[in-house]
Measured scan of single mutants.
Amino acid sequence: KEFRPGDKVVLPPYGVGVVAGIAQRSVSGVSRAYYQVDFPGSRSKAYVPVEAPHSVGLRKAL
C-alpha cells in the first residue's frame, strides 16, 4: 500500500489530512477498499480509492 495509517497527506480541495486507515465501502453493490482520510480540527472525512489515489490528487504532505 502506498499510504499507511498516520501518514500526513494533501487532498485537494480539502487540504492537509491524516490517513486513518483502510475501509471497505460498497458503491453500486461493489465492495472496494478506500483510504479514510481525517482532517484535524474538523469532523470531515474523505474516502479515496486505494487502487487509484492519485486520480483524485491524494499525495503525501511535505
Score class of each variant (00 low, 15 high):
A61E: 09
R43Y: 11
A20H: 08
P13G: 15
D38E: 14
I22V: 08
P53Y: 07
E51M: 06
E51T: 07
K45D: 03
V9W: 01
A46C: 10
G41M: 09
G17S: 01
E51Y: 06
P49W: 06
K1L: 15
Y34K: 01
A52N: 14
S31C: 14
V27D: 10
Y34P: 01
A61G: 05
G41S: 11
S55P: 05
V10A: 04
V27N: 07
L11K: 00
K45E: 06
E2L: 11
S31I: 14
S42H: 10
F3V: 03
V56C: 15
K60W: 05
I22H: 02
G29L: 02
V16Q: 11
R32Q: 10
Q24G: 04
A33V: 10
H54S: 10
R4N: 13
P49T: 04
V37G: 01
P5Q: 09
P53Q: 06
G29C: 04
V27I: 12
S26R: 13
P12V: 05
G15W: 05
V37C: 04
P13N: 08
V27Q: 08
V48L: 04
V9F: 03
P13K: 09
S55E: 13
R4G: 08
S26M: 14
S28R: 12
V30H: 11
K1F: 15
Y35W: 05
R25H: 09
V10M: 08
P49A: 06
S28I: 04
A61W: 13
V18G: 00
V10C: 13
R4W: 10
Q24D: 08
G21N: 07
A52L: 06
G41I: 09
R4M: 15
Y34I: 02
V9P: 11
V56I: 07
G21I: 04
A52Y: 08
V19Y: 03
Q36E: 15
K45P: 15
L11A: 02
E2Q: 10
S55H: 09
F39G: 00
S26P: 06
P40I: 10
E2I: 12
K60S: 09
V50I: 10
G57E: 05
G21K: 11
G29A: 02
S26A: 08
P5G: 03
P12M: 07
K60P: 15
R4P: 09
G15I: 02
G57Q: 06
G17C: 04
F3M: 04
P13M: 08
F3S: 01
G57N: 05
E2D: 11
A23S: 11
K8N: 07
Q36T: 08
G57F: 02
V30E: 09
K60M: 10
D7L: 03
V19L: 08
V56M: 09
P12N: 05
V9M: 03
V16G: 05
A46L: 08
G57C: 11
Y34G: 02
G57K: 05
R59F: 04
S44Q: 14
Y34E: 03
V50T: 05
L58I: 09
V50N: 00
V18D: 01
R32S: 11
R43P: 13
G6M: 03
P40F: 12
P40A: 09
K60V: 08
V19N: 00
V10Q: 05
L11R: 00
V50L: 07
P12R: 05
V30Q: 09
F39K: 00
V16N: 08
V27A: 06
S44I: 14
P5L: 10
P13L: 08
G6T: 02
L58C: 07
P13C: 15
V50K: 03
I22K: 03
V18L: 06
F39W: 02
A20I: 13
P53W: 13
A20T: 13
G41A: 12
S42I: 11
G6S: 01
R25M: 13
L58G: 03
A46I: 12
G15C: 15
Y14C: 13
A33C: 14
R32P: 03
P53E: 04
P53S: 14
D38P: 00
R32I: 11
A20M: 12
L11C: 08
K45N: 06
L58Y: 00
P40Y: 11
A23H: 12
Q36F: 06
K8D: 04
K8W: 15
A46S: 06
G21C: 13
R59C: 12
S42G: 11
K1W: 14
Y35E: 05
A20G: 06
V56T: 10
G6I: 01
G41P: 14
R32G: 14
V19K: 00
P53G: 09
E2F: 09
V37F: 01
V19Q: 01
V27K: 09
F3Q: 01
A33G: 07
Y14L: 07
S42Y: 09
A52V: 06
P13H: 10
G41N: 12
Y35M: 03
Y34N: 02
S42V: 09
S44W: 13
V16I: 12
A52P: 04
Y35A: 01
Y34D: 04
P12A: 07
P5F: 07
P49Q: 05
S42T: 13
Q36A: 08
A23D: 05
H54W: 09
E51L: 07
G41D: 13
K60C: 14
S55V: 11
G15H: 02
R32M: 11
V9L: 03
S42F: 10
Q24K: 11
V27F: 08
S26E: 13
L62I: 14
G6W: 01
S31R: 11
V30D: 07
A52F: 10
Y47C: 07
P40S: 06
Y47I: 03
A33H: 11
S28K: 13
P49G: 03
G57A: 05
L11T: 01
R43G: 14
F3W: 10
A61Y: 14
Y34R: 01
V50Y: 05
Q24I: 15
A33I: 09
K60Q: 08
A52M: 07
Y34C: 07
K8S: 09
V48H: 15
A61D: 10
V56H: 14
V27E: 12
V48I: 08
G29F: 01
S42A: 09
G21V: 05
V56N: 12
V27W: 06
Y47F: 12
E2A: 12
V56W: 05
D38H: 11
A52R: 07
A46P: 00
G17D: 01
D7S: 04
D38F: 13
D38N: 11
A46Q: 11
S26Q: 11
V19E: 01
V10K: 04
S55D: 11
A33F: 13
H54C: 13
L62G: 15
S26L: 13
G15S: 02
R43C: 15
A33W: 14
F3K: 01
V27H: 08
R4Y: 10
G41L: 11
S55T: 12
F39L: 04
P5V: 14
Q36D: 06
D38Q: 11
L11Q: 07
V48E: 01
Y47E: 04
S44C: 15
K8L: 15
A33L: 14
D7Q: 06
L58M: 14
A46D: 02
D38T: 12
R25T: 08
S55K: 12
R4A: 12
G15L: 03
Y14D: 01
K8Q: 09
V56G: 10
A23P: 03
Y35R: 00
V16P: 07
G21H: 06
Y34W: 05
L11S: 02
V19T: 00
Q24F: 13
V50F: 05
P5T: 12
S42Q: 10
P53T: 12
L58R: 03
H54Y: 07
G21L: 08
E51C: 07
V56E: 08
H54F: 07
A52H: 09
V16T: 09
V56Y: 07
Y14W: 12
P5H: 05
K1D: 15
A23N: 06
G29M: 02
V18F: 10
D7F: 02
K8Y: 13
V16A: 10
V19M: 04
D38R: 08
D7E: 08
V19C: 06
H54V: 05
Y47Q: 03
P12Q: 06
Y47G: 01
Y34T: 00
V18C: 11
G6D: 02
E2T: 10
G6R: 02
V48T: 01
A23I: 15
K1S: 14
V37E: 02
Y35Q: 02
P49C: 10
V18M: 07
Q36P: 03
H54T: 08
F39Q: 00
A23C: 15
S28V: 08
V48Q: 00
V30P: 13
V37Q: 01
G57L: 03
G29R: 04
G29I: 01
S44Y: 13
Q24E: 11
P49E: 05
D7H: 02
G21S: 09
G6K: 02
S44R: 14
Y47L: 07
R25A: 06
A52Q: 07
Y14P: 01
G17P: 02
A20R: 12
A23Y: 12
K45I: 13
